[in-house]
Design a protein around this nucleic acid. Structure first.
Lengths: 402, 402
DNA sequence: CATATTTGTTCGTTTGTCGAATAAAACAAT
DNA sequence: ATTGTTTTATTCGACAAACGAACAAATATG
């Protein structure tokens, strides 16, 4: 009845590898310090990991010594010759790729402009498979061990299924399996906001204690929620498409088919579309505007365009309402606002702050810190690559145990 | 850095006591089955627990044997002679009390009509202390080991602080310490919706797997959220006053000072107040109506009063919106609607269902089951008493370990 | 070169769990 | 009555995992 329980050894092994992935090369004593373990136990664990070739001792430690008295530390880290992992993000008309070696070090990256919307499921998987294969070939990476893919929508990471996505017509697409078969490698899929949240939390230790809610504004509005540094998993993906909470009953149309979703006020496409409407130009079909177009929009607003300023004010208000709901439901210790949408944070802030204060019960407000993290989509592939590496580590451990 | 880590022994001990509390008297083999442990280990653990007098072997097992072939089971359970625990719920003008023995068996209960609103913090604690002491005395319970108190508002169980409560004027009241000093016993405080959620989940095993959100409608609207049967703890109490999420910007006044809170549509006081307003009677100050008054209101609506029906329709709609937010944020496997407010579920249902379907993205809707649990406030004291007993069990274990 | 200092390993011990054998306590069959 | 049968519980030896203490290793300092 206790499910697939890991052996104590596997748990320890995993914790060790996790901290090593995060904290860079560490000496055995330092690992012990991080994990609250005795040096003896660390020695035992690392001995077998070195033996298996998962870890290697760091060269050139002599640079570090020279001033410290005792025996110099020998730092350990992942071997970088055990193959590669590719991280992918798929947007509406763009694919971002990143290649890392087994030590997690960046080896190559690429972005491809390619409209993905309205492709059939099979066609989409073909395109992805080809793009990934070409990238691996061109980067001279013959031995890709796994692929991590971050995409929009409700993603069930465990089952490898995309339940719904704004990009896809199909529902319940078994993407991990489909792409995995084409590539002949394990594929891990993840919601993009979750991947972003994970990456951001890897960089800031404060975000790994307590609960952290990451609101990502960009093509859509996503939520990645972390509890003690681990991604919260709901029945499906865990609040990851929070952007489709409908805050205004008679609000603008959203691409999900509903009305008044958070996303329908805040996402790039929504702001761009509403700006077009102001100019009495015909409303475009849903379209992801370029970064340039969004930059121009923001610049025009900053220059004092009152109609545009009103749009941003309303968007900020919705963001404040959204943050307030998060606070009063999840009671997070931190809220992080991230993604390309933060480019207009100066325009959103006044109404955001006002709405947040207005809508949140004061006793709770002080418990949550709110910060804006300027994060490019780069972080996204970084996040999903780290997750794929972690899975790989775990598989290694499990393989050994079997 | 790893906090206060329990020894493996303590963890096992606690898991054992938890299942025993929940699943009633069990034989050693059955315990092993529940926990996925070998009989040898169970024997080892129970031996010391029997030795310490925490557990006893059940008498009268001969009634159970007689038809089964092998050696008869000897069921173990908590000794009932190790003192008592009192569970308390404080409403606006009512205090509910329950006395259980160390085996968790009900020994006495009482409810006291007593307006608590607008009392000073010290006066409130005095009243509670006196009421509890009198109850213990009258019930012939000389040896009360601990008190569990469930109350409305933002409760920080760990710190024992009530951050804010509709009953209190004060903020950040250290209630556990204050009451504990007066009574000379440890006091555990908990949000009432959380206590209710805990009690309901103890009764239904299905609610202890995955995530369960319990919406309690009554004096206010509370939320108890469980992950794998354990209460989710946010930065404070964990979404417990979800009722103060503001869904309608220009909605009715709420007792928290805001406007358009979920509670301001659904709570007893809100429905009662709005019904008064329909009749052009002067709006009463915030007042908790009696169960009779609410019954009359519901009866009148069922009889076809269109204005009242409209009130309930709107309340149902808000409930649907609320459930939708929960689904799209927490992605729970189960939503349970409970509390006295379910008395009018037939009136709320049509608009509730409609709003829920309208506001929720279809890909997620099917993942969450929704059920209504008719639950009296009795369950509440049961929930908090169980939590207090659990704490006591843990303390026993810790005491031994020290 | 001896000493101090810090890192890492070895080794014996403790703790917790398990499997297998064994004992215990009933019923069933002859 | 006695002898199996069946299920429950305990005992005992084995093993895994982690720890503390002692010890070895590698460097800086005086």
């Amino acid at each position: 009845m206790s499910g697939s329980s890991l052996s104590p050894r596997e748990v320890a092994r995993r914790r060790l590898l996790d901290t090593l992935r995060r904290e860079g090369p560490l000496a055995r004593v330092e690992i012990g310090h991080h994990l609250g373990m005795s040096p003896a136990s660390v020695s035992e664990l690392t001995a077998s990991l070195l033996d298996e070739g998962v870890l290697v001792t760091e060269e050139g430690s002599e640079a570090l010594s020279g001033l410290i008295r005792g025996r110099p530390k020998v730092r350990l880290f992942f071997a970088d010759s055990l193959g590669f992992v590719i991280g992918v993000w798929t947007g509406f008309n763009r694919i971002e790729l990143r290649l890392v070696d087994s030590a997690g070090r960046n080896r190559a990256s690429r972005h491809v402009e390619r409209p993905l919307r309205n492709l059939e499921a099979d066609a989409l998987m073909d395109v992805l498979s080809e793009t990934i294969t070409a990238f691996a070939r061109d980067s001279g990476a013959p031995d890709v061990k796994a692929v991590g893919l971050a995409c929009q929508g409700y993603v069930d990471t465990k089952e490898g299924i995309v339940a719904w996505s704004p990009v896809l017509g199909t529902r319940d697409l078994p993407l991990a399996e489909g792409l995995g078969q084409r590539l002949g490698k394990p594929v891990l899929i993840e919601n993009d906001a979750s991947a972003m949240a994970f990456a951001i939390a890897q960089r800031d230790p404060a975000l790994r204690v307590g609960r952290t809610a990451c609101l990502m504004i960009g093509d859509g509005v996503g939520l990645g929620f972390l509890v003690q540094g681990e991604l919260y998993r709901g029945a499906r993906s865990g609040g990851s498409e929070f952007g489709h909470v409908r805050l205004r009953r008679s609000g603008p149309q959203c691409r999900c088919g509903g009305r008044g979703c958070i996303e329908a006020f805040l996402a790039d496409y929504a702001l761009h579309r509403d700006a077009q409407l102001i100019d009495h130009r015909p409303a475009p079909t849903i379209l992801i505007p370029s970064e340039d177009a969004m930059g121009a929009l923001v610049a025009q607003a900053r220059a004092g365009d009152t109609a545009l300023l009103h749009l941003f004010r309303e968007a900020g208000e919705v963001l404040g309402d959204a943050a307030s709901i998060l606070i009063q439901t999840l009671e997070p210790d931190h809220i992080v606002i991230c993604g390309p949408g933060t480019r207009a944070m100066d325009l959103l802030s006044p109404s955001f702050e006002a709405a947040l204060e207005h809508q949140t019960i004061p006793a709770l407000r002080s418990l949550t810190t709110i910060q804006v993290v300027e994060s490019s989509m780069d972080l996204l592939t970084e996040g999903v690559v780290m997750q794929a590496l972690r899975e790989l580590d775990q598989d290694l451990a499990r393989l050994r145990a079997a």
